[in-house]
Design a protein around this nucleic acid. Structure first.
Lengths: 253, 253
DNA sequence: TATAGTTGTCTATATCACTATACAAGTGAG
DNA sequence: CTCACTTGTATAGTGATATAGACAACTATA
């Protein structure tokens, strides 16, 4: 299976009066063109008049879509020559028993980094308590992290750890920059993923800011629990991936 | 973990001049309100003026959002009384080694059904051949199916089976209404999922029609390969779920 | 240099999306 | 019945979105 195996077979037509402006729909389509292999090897877009005809809109509408993508850094225009992608391929993130950020994306980006944004010790709310097999209100260490590939944010996560068992997890993470290493420092040499729940929604305000997305972008939300070799939960996490930059692969065999 | 564990923690603010009209953003937000537990037990929406204030828009803009959702069958209004959801909860679809449509959703809907829309024998293109471990161009049986829960479409799939080994798969499916039973009829008593790739995109034209969605809706796309007990691929499939109606759960432990 | 092909700019017009304000009409409770 | 609260309708003004056509500016190539 290829890394882009889940591309839609056919693209949707442009819809009028859908509540989404034509330039926005076209800009979303152009963005997806990049990975569909329909363009020249030099990443050159068809000329504006051709796109206008293909989408059944005025050339100015296409120009509006393009200018937004230029603003966003996705495209670059050269008068007299054409419009080109500033290409960035989509990363494949494996989810399974042994889900780890850096190891999973290794080789797909020249730099991979997990950054701790904020942390504190809080009382577990209902869903965290359930995930970690604790009483509601039990103390947990909360971490907000962002995953960077080549310096660009691709995921943002909130994680909760039982505070009685792993009080130093935040410091350990800050020093090592990785959950795996931090847990290892604290005497947990191995852990596995018990369950993952996936949903997809439009990006929230938070997502837009943290993942540097534009309104209307899609995020993949993964909620999961990691357990130690005895099966005891040690981490409950909610991760949000930019669907434009990441695809999830599930190895179940 | 609860069935709705991956809900966004906070919702995005309404954005002006994003290319997505305010009524559309509000309508998307209201749609998500249903599962967030923020409304009365009778499924009653806050009054229009309150929503208008909350979102920082004119009451007419809220009315526009509501009227679209009424059109769509999500809401129902009663003059003088209020606006109410015609509620439909989200289904949890398990993905793992033993992914099966009906068994997975059992108990979550009063009727579950897999319908064969179309089938034919075709030559495998590159990605199908790769998934099934065949030469490109080898004959494969192609099925287009739709999964219904309580008569409503929740997923649509294309599947390919090696034609030399399973020439009668389409007929068997038509008779039994299930992949599992059809394979069983043809002597394959068990099968497991080898790998699944997930992405999320906006719904295509096809999706809109088959899943009865509205433009801008999100679909979860799963590409997977099923193998027989000897590890030989017997089915390559591309399934598209309505993200509004389905969440995917991954049991990896 | 001439030409075809491309992006950039300008003007004009029509429609959609949103706001503002006012009031009608239905519902439920005192 | 009356009142407070709700949804429904009407009108008018403003800015964003989209169309149409014409032409300028730049690039590559014959």
């Amino acid at each position: 299976m290829t890394a882009t195996g889940a591309e839609p077979a056919r693209d949707a037509a442009i819809r009028r009066n859908s509540g989404v402006s034509l330039w926005r729909q076209i800009s979303d389509r152009i963005r997806r063109l990049e990975t569909s292999g329909e363009l020249d090897s030099d990443g050159r877009l068809p000329p504006e008049f051709a796109l206008a005809e293909e989408f059944g809109v005025n050339r100015h509408t296409v120009r509006s879509a393009i200018s937004h993508l230029v603003q966003e850094g996705v495209l670059r225009t050269e008068q007299g020559r054409g419009t080109f992608f500033r290409s960035r391929p989509r990363l494949a993130y494996p989810i399974g028993r042994r889900t780890r950020f850096s190891a999973g994306l290794e080789g797909q980006a020249s730099s991979l980094q997990m950054v701790l944004v904020e942390s504190s010790t809080v009382d577990a709310d209902a869903r965290v308590a359930e995930g970690l097999d604790l009483e509601a209100g039990a103390p947990v260490v909360w971490l907000r992290t962002i995953g960077l590939a080549d310096g660009e944010p691709v995921s943002t996560a909130e994680s909760w750890f039982p505070a009685d068992r792993l009080p130093g997890i935040a410091d350990a993470f800050r020093r090592t920059g990785s959950v795996t290493s931090a847990l290892s420092l604290l005497g947990i040499g191995d852990y596995t993923r018990r369950a993952t729940t996936l949903t997809a929604t439009h990006a929230s305000d938070d997502d837009l800011a943290r993942l540097k997305l534009t309104p209307g972008a899609i995020v993949l939300a993964a909620v999961g629990v990691n357990v130690d070799p005895d099966g005891r939960p040690i981490q409950y996490s909610e991760t949000r991936f930019s669907a434009d930059r990441i695809e999830l692969t599930i190895e179940s065999g």
